[in-house]
């Protein structure tokens, strides 16, 4: 679509100055990662083999093969792509962490989903992906990006913010719009806990990636229409970090609260411990 935003060009230049790598090398690696993401999507959509626990494995293919009753092909594609990646992940398959494995489906779901919907090439996704990485860097300087440290808000919130900025850039948004897309995605994720059933990256992680891939696309839509985050981006990151620090250990990936402690969640834990 448009030329890269000044923001993504700045991110690339700054990071290469730090690492000493050639920008073209980084772009080449990024393209390689986009293709790896595509492979995960393809594998995930073509199988309904169960995960390690048997809790997930057929969701992506199930949705992909189902009729589009809402007549919303973009929505369906984004959701199916995101779950395909996370179901591959749950099968101990090969994925690209973005920024983590538990949140690996959000960026490919949103960015590759939108690109395929509009018929764009993988090469056009490279600079948006660089910007996504830059947003992730900016967040991780103030905040943690693991569920164990800051709850799911830190993981899926970061991936959704990164994806929102990337989709905004892909569709020709200004640098300012990209950053506000990220900020809006993040501010609407604050408070989300990490309560995986049995401690496995499956429930709610797989469906959560479908939801937050859509969340990222929504955020891009608002930003592209000129809407902005009322709380400035840096302050939103600060607020999320504060909430993360207040979050009890039980809700930070320990499987000691929330969905993990439901009767059904406990039954899964007991069954897996017996194995």
């Amino acid at each position: 679509m448009n030329a890269p935003s000044p923001a993504s060009a700045w991110v690339l230049e700054t990071d290469c100055a730090e690492s000493g790598l050639d920008p073209e090398t980084v772009k080449g690696s990024m393209l390689g990662r986009i293709r790896e993401m595509r492979d995960s999507i393809r594998r995930g959509l073509s199988t309904d083999a169960p995960s390690i626990t048997g809790m997930v494995g057929w969701n992506a293919k199930g949705l992909h093969d189902a009729p589009d009753v809402l007549q919303a092909p973009l929505l369906k594609r984004v959701q199916a792509y995101a779950m395909a990646v996370n179901e591959e992940n749950a099968r101990m398959g090969r994925i690209v962490a973005a920024p983590t494995a538990g949140s690996a489906g959000t960026i490919p779901g949103a960015l590759i989903g939108v690109a395929d919907h509009l018929g764009l090439s993988d090469e056009q996704l490279v600079m948006p992906m660089v910007l996504a990485a830059g947003i992730g860097q900016a967040i991780s300087r103030q905040m943690f990006i693991s569920g164990a440290a800051g709850g799911c808000q830190a993981e899926i919130g970061s991936s959704a913010a990164m994806a929102a900025a990337a989709v905004t850039e892909l569709l020709g948004g200004s640098s300012r719009a990209c950053v506000h897309a990220a900020s809006m995605a993040l501010m609407n994720t604050i408070g989300l806990v990490c309560d995986p059933v049995g401690g496995f990256v499956e429930v709610p992680c797989v469906s959560r990636n479908a939801f937050f891939a859509v969340h990222a696309v929504s955020s891009a839509q608002l930003a592209l229409a000129g809407l902005e985050s009322f709380i400035p981006p840096d302050e939103v990151v600060g607020a999320m970090a504060q909430v993360g620090r207040m979050m009890p250990l039980e809700l930070r990936e320990t499987a000691e609260g929330g969905l993990a402690q439901t009767p059904t969640g406990l039954a899964v834990t007991a069954r897996m411990e017996g194995k």
């Binding site: 990662r33 992940n89 994925i95 690209v96 962490a97 983590t100 992730g136 496995f200 499956e202």
Partner: peptide
């Protein structure tokens, strides 16, 4: 941030 390419299920 976009990576590593890895075998699942958890980056950490």
């Amino acid at each position: 941030m976009i990576g590593p390419v890895m075998i699942g299920p958890s980056s950490s």
